[in-house]
Design a protein around this nucleic acid. Sequence first.
DNA 1: CCACCCTAGAGGTCAGACCACAGTATACAC
DNA 2: GTGTATACTGTGGTCTGACCTCTAGGGTGG
Lengths: 259, 259
Amino acid sequence: MLRMKQDLTDTHRTMQVVNHIRALIENGTLQPGDKIPPEREFARSLNISRASLRTGIGYLAAMGVMKVRHGVGTFVADGPAEFGKASFSLMGVLHGFQSWQMFEVRLIIESNLAALAAERAKEEHHTALAEEVAEIFASIDSPSDFLIHDVLFHRILSQASGNPILAALMETITSALYDKRRKTVERSTDLRESAEMHRMIYRAIRARDPVEARRLMEQHLRMAQAAQGMERPTARKTIDGIARPRTLQLDKGSAPSRL
Amino acid sequence: MLRMKQDLTDTHRTMQVVNHIRALIENGTLQPGDKIPPEREFARSLNISRASLRTGIGYLAAMGVMKVRHGVGTFVADGPAEFGKASFSLMGVLHGFQSWQMFEVRLIIESNLAALAAERAKEEHHTALAEEVAEIFASIDSPSDFLIHDVLFHRILSQASGNPILAALMETITSALYDKRRKTVERSTDLRESAEMHRMIYRAIRARDPVEARRLMEQHLRMAQAAQGMERPTARKTIDGIARPRTLQLDKGSAPSRL
DNA sequence: CCACCCTAGAGGTCAGACCACAGTATACAC
DNA sequence: GTGTATACTGTGGTCTGACCTCTAGGGTGG
């Protein structure tokens, strides 16, 4: 009737490797930061060729679950969760993501992140947040440093929200936005105002006031968006990149496996 | 001082392939659904070995940008945008994602999706949405069919929101939730109530009432969550899967490349 | 006209040699 | 003794080319 086949990228051996490692992570044998055995050895122990093993590892590395370091070894990722850095930009060109859409998503997610953080942040988060606010003020004359601590502030806030999934989504958007920001921040003049906003957001979180935290975060982001001239276009035209009409197909295709 | 190296998975050849294909997609040479040349031939034209080409393709396939079909060929993905199906579950076991967190994210994203859809949906979306509502009512006695149209309804709503990024994030969460739902829906008794909710949401969107659409969607999701007994635990214990304490490190590590 | 089988074309796997990189041990010069 | 240069070892990266498996389509016999 409809689709029967599973379009998963589950090529025999590849998935075998992926599932094996997944299992090792699930039962705790492998923890973030751990190193897996050398390819030659690991391949032998799994009774597959090194090439196949590498395919599987490549798969895991592509989505950020593992990190491969030439000449050193392969490790389980340990940084903040994220859905493939490159993934986002690739998906972007493929589906025509636009800047205003990124900001819209950021506004939605981060304002909720702020609200949740206000409700759930622990002492240690308050401390870390306060430190970053201080660093931000201290970096007012150095745009590049300012941006670093700005990013750090938002990342800590993500963790304070107590929802790693939301944090991971935010991280994905943020890293995609980073390059663009790095360029504009340089010629930014009112970093003082931005610093002040961070401080106010921190105070709202500190005071466990979700409503205020959300409001301030929204205000902060709208200001940031305006500063980069990336508001949503009133008309239907592309801001950056080529316009991509692409007949919008209400594709029912590939409904969640089997049906 | 801090990190200097770029931890990107950019192994020479691999990235070379990825960027090449990315370029082909950007300049329109490759469109969703298109087939790329056979590996042997493509590899020769790029002056790299077939193995390297395959590594690159595997990378792209892993994040859902390309689809490989054994014995047929390799194609550019054309379905709804999504950040790697497997990616999510892998990230899940790695960072300890929990059910209530997935619901929380879904609640946040989808309620906003509904609000946006109410503001921006076009005629064609209204039509498609109405059709699915009808299908949903028609499937009240068939849980499996019901679920299919339920998913379709939400997917169309995502497209109607006019923000493909948000839609992609939603799709990622949804596909992860799908399996779990498939099990519970079977023994669900009040599908009628759910169907009614979909109809009301549709009407709110149709009436271009963002506030009401958001409110109804939130209500709908909370009911769904309650039906599956996945509210957020009052205490600090795990619902499913093993508890994973994992010393919460405020990892500053891997700040967005170079600094 | 339909069912079955065969085959061409495309991806999947394998084996083993060799290259490139990172970190450490060693040797030589001062 | 100290320090720097070099060699070695371990680990991932790439290449070749042969062979396996799957899919789709066309040919052939019933």
